[in-house]
């Protein structure tokens, strides 16, 4: 019975830890567009491995959330005027929140 409880605990813990989230708020300064595309990909240097998982269009001041497995990701944001943002993010079991501040290049 004791071992069974441990087993249940381990299963529950692993289930809980298989999902986390990555949320953010988008800041677009003057000179940028009113909307940005926020991209979530695997954090890989090699182009062929940098798989795009999800992307969403977010207006200035808007918010978003990606639900992810723990791991290493890149959050990129870009707009039509050439404004850009890139951050590598290591997601563990706890949700991560970012301020996505785009910069005019």
């Amino acid at each position: 019975m004791k071992y069974f409880s441990y087993l249940l605990l381990i299963i529950s813990f692993s289930a809980l830890s298989s999902e986390s989230s990555l949320s953010g708020k988008v800041f677009l300064p003057e000179g940028c567009s009113k909307k940005a595309m926020v991209w979530l990909s695997l954090d890989k240097e090699n182009y062929q491995e940098r798989l795009l998982l999800l992307h969403t269009e977010v207006p200035r001041g808007g918010t978003f959330r990606f639900y992810v497995k723990p791991g290493n990701y890149q959050i990129r944001a870009s707009d039509e005027e050439g404004c850009d943002f890139l951050q590598k993010v290591h997601v563990q079991n706890n949700p991560v929140h970012l301020d996505v501040k785009l910069v005019k290049k």
Partner: peptide, 14 residues
Amino acid sequence: PWWGYQGDLYYPNL
């Protein structure tokens, strides 16, 4: 659309 060109530069599976 504009995001298509940008996405194509960075991601193989856009």
